[in-house]
Amino acid sequence: MMEPPRTADVAALETTAREIRRDIIRMTYLAGSGHPGGSLSVTDLLTALLFREMRIDPERPTWPDRDRLVLSKGHAAPALYAALAHRGFLPRAELATLRRLGSRLQGHADRGKLPAIEASTGCLGQGIGMAVGMALDARLAGRSHMVYAVLGDGECQAGPTWEALMAGGHYRLDRLVVLLDRNGLETDGPTEAIMGIEPIADKFRAFRYRTVEIDGHDFPQILDALAEARSRTDGPTAIVARTVKGKGVSFMEGKSAWHGKPPSKSEAERALADLGSPEEVPAR
């Protein structure tokens, strides 16, 4: 089915993603607060973007033609920090400073503190609009780099998310790719019980996005969808990535309680055992 080199490539991505997930657990444990659930669900999407699809260079973080990534669901900042660190944009040792006074790693990413961050996000429904602005900027400047906006599903309840999506469709921004981390859970419970967003793929289509639905933990599917999005010349793409909140940690999977709660010491150690190998974490 798949060619051997690709299998090796996928295995490498899976290894990287596991390391990023381990860092997410260590970081949120050490910080004593944060959002592990949605960080773990979006990890494979970010790994595919930063380690394969995106044209970026840690040696030239402000290269004008670099692809842009906007984490509109800004609370998944631990996943982004860990991925950026593994990709060489910041020292891995710095990850331990998450949420500490004086750290560059704010609870929600701040581009003023950490230049590798393209847009400061946190309050939902705004990053997607900034991504639309970045894609318009690129078009005006005659540049062809991609702009990726990663949305959360709770964020799809916010009106301004749809304002921005409407604008991306209206301007036919073919360099804009919206990735929805569809883990199905928000802070208080399942999205469909709180305020349903389905049929979400149809909604994106109605807003003029070529929309694909994939398994957001399957690297070949993610990479195919991203490659197809780059080849488009007639409008924006939406990738609805079905994911599992808390992915990779048995007791966090599918539980909205882990949206905004850090693991305790024993929970962190159990999570690290789930993610490949046991590890003792220092006292907080």
Binding site: A119, Q126, I128, G129, M130, V132, M134, D137, P160, Y171
Partner: peptide, 20 residues
């Protein structure tokens, strides 16, 4: 860009346009 009646998102789009 006349973005229509979406003042909140106009601010986000404006910010995205300016960052380069």
């Amino acid at each position: 860009f006349n973005v229509g009646v979406m003042e909140p998102t106009m601010m986000s789009i404006a910010a995205g346009l300016s960052l380069g």
